[in-house]
């Protein structure tokens, strides 16, 4: 270099800024960590299943420990909230397919919870049935964390008549789809009860989820 000249910057045109590097580092770490962790929805522990000596509909239900609440007249449900797992979902009516199986909400409405429209309305006497997706191709669905519910958690369903039926969880069970207990889940009941169903259990690419997570709950309050 000749004296008096500016020092030549010998570095190439692109020098990554610290900010850019930090972003790349963080993003890279996140991707690697989530890939390794696997991202499976939470599954119910055996502590949340029915006590072995008792069946649903008997004195082990939450309503046995609460002052009795009268059943509500029929009214379509509009909104479903599960505070313990941060669910606040609009509701849509569902039908049965030709085999009698309950159709879930459409795949393009993963944030909706559905209810069986020809059955009991939530809050009325009988067994109201609701279901929603645990996940879709794009990511978690409305009931991704349903398996994390515990006995005593509440599910609140607001109806078209502006009353909110509050149900308390009696049990959370996992059933094999091949051996699904129809009577236990869908069978009628003399009290206002609720079932919330989503997929769960082992997942395989070819066959999908092997089981259903089923939450059993009883009406304990009306607000």
């Amino acid at each position: 270099m000749a004296p008096g000249d500016e020092p030549v910057d010998s570095s190439p045109a692109f020098t990554p800024s610290t900010k850019f590097l930090a972003c790349a580092l963080l993003t890279g770490l996140m991707l690697v960590i989530t890939a390794l962790r696997g991202g499976q929805p939470p599954q119910p522990s055996t502590a949340q299943s029915f006590s072995p000596s008792l069946r649903p509909g008997l004195s082990n239900t939450a309503s046995a420990h609460h002052p009795s609440v009268s059943a509500l007249p029929p009214s379509d449900p509009v909104r479903l909230r599960v505070p313990a797992i941060g669910v606040n979902a609009p509701m849509t009516e569902l039908t049965l397919d030709e085999t009698g199986a309950l159709r879930p909400p459409p795949a393009d409405l993963p944030a909706f919870a559905g209810w069986y429209g020809d059955g009991t309305t939530p809050g009325s006497e009988g067994t109201a049935v609701t279901t929603g997706h645990v996940d879709t191709q794009e990511g978690p669905g409305v009931f991704y964390r349903l398996g994390a519910l515990a006995k005593g958690d509440t599910i609140e369903i607001t109806r078209a008549d502006r009353q909110t039926a509050v149900f308390t969880v009696d049990a959370v069970e996992l059933y094999d789809k091949e051996a699904f207990p129809d009577e236990k889940v869908y069978g009628s009941s003399p009290r206002p009860e609720l079932r919330v169903i989503t997929c769960g259990g082992e997942y395989a690419e070819e066959t999908g989820y092997q089981g259903n997570v089923v939450v059993f709950a009883t009406l304990t309050a009306v607000t």
Partner: peptide, 13 residues
């Protein structure tokens, strides 16, 4: 009049 069988409510992310 009641549903029967399991519900197909998941796709696997």
């Amino acid at each position: 009049g009641n549903p029967s069988g399991s519900v197909d409510a998941g796709f696997g992310t």
